[in-house]
């Protein structure tokens, strides 16, 4: 059998080329990330001021601040989490602690997976037909929060489930052996152990809910509102929608783009900060329970 030196050489070259290509892939990916963050921070920082954060828009959206949009996003996000957290947690507890393995659990699991894959604009259509029209909540904080709540529900369920699963089985057995009932066991031992993981999931879904635009397009958001929302039935300004509206409506593109940069910076800073906290917590927590 002939040994071909040239072939051996070329396989080493191939390896080098291949590895360079892979390194290039990750570098390009990170360049996009850096580019987006740099663009928005470098152009947005000069717009941010105390007035920008705390006052209402003036002169047909070309001056003043975006405080109502910040407040609106806060309301929508809090509403969404308040709706989705109890439901999601209950669902995760059922699936992990009570659910008999089999048909029912499979059906629920399948519906969670599919719900997670539904396009965000379809949630918007659902919210429009059900909350805005059928229940008559109108275009409002309530409709928007409920729609966003359904959108983040699958994420909260999976994160909670992962956290519950990571809680060691031995603590359940120990509790049951001491004569505690199943609910006492869940409440006093399993949930406290899983709490950091659950909180991480909740924090991540806060970031998601704050940044989503399509679901609130027809259910909650408005471009311009005089002052702040006064009840859960009033429509609101929201940061992500405000960026869209500034870029596509109105008559003074230059001034509007500057304000949009400011809004984009706020939104990006909020979501990045929230996600960073969540990722940090999760990594810390995962290594805690790594067995």
């Amino acid at each position: 059998m002939k040994i071909r030196i040239s072939n051996k050489f070329s396989s080493a070259v191939k390896e080098k080329i291949g590895f360079t290509f892979l390194a290039l892939c990750i570098v390009i990916t990170l360049l996009f990330l850096a580019g987006i963050i740099y663009l928005i921070f470098s152009n947005g920082l000069e717009v941010i001021s105390w007035e920008f954060l705390t006052s209402v828009p003036r002169k047909g959206m070309t001056a003043g601040g975006v405080a109502p949009a910040i407040v609106g996003t806060l309301y929508l996000t809090v509403g969404a989490v308040a709706f989705a957290l109890p439901l999601g947690l209950a669902c995760a507890i059922y699936l992990n602690e009570y659910g008999p393995r089999g048909f029912i659990v499979n059906i629920i699991r399948m519906s969670i997976n599919n719900l997670a894959g539904v396009p965000s604009v379809v949630f918007g259509l659902f919210g429009l037909a059900v909350f805005v029209k059928f229940f008559g909540f109108g275009v409002s904080i309530l409709s928007g929060s409920l729609t966003l709540g359904i959108l983040i529900l699958p994420g909260i369920i999976s994160a909670s489930q992962e956290a519950l699963m990571a809680a060691p089985y031995s603590i359940r057995e120990a509790s049951l052996a001491l004569g505690a009932t199943q609910w006492q066991t869940i409440k006093k031992t399993v949930l406290p152990a899983a709490m950091p993981g659950i909180m991480t999931g909740v924090i991540l879904s806060v970031a998601r809910a704050a940044g989503e635009t399509a679901p609130i397009l027809f259910t909650a958001a408005t471009f311009y509102k005089r002052g702040y929302p006064d009840s859960i039935f009033s429509e609101v300004m929201a940061l992500p929608y405000h960026i869209y509206a500034l870029m596509t409506e109105g008559t003074k593109p230059d001034k509007q783009t500057a304000i949009a940069y400011g809004c984009a910076l706020l939104l990006l800073a909020i979501t990045l900060l929230i996600s960073a906290v969540a990722i940090y917590l999760r990594n810390k927590y995962r290594s805690l329970y790594a067995r």
């Binding site: 990330l33 991540l204 940044g211 399509a214 984009a264 939104l267 990006l268 979501t271 929230i274």
Partner: peptide, 9 residues
Amino acid sequence: TLASIPSII
């Protein structure tokens, strides 16, 4: 982090 950037951005 790239995944957590909102689509509007």
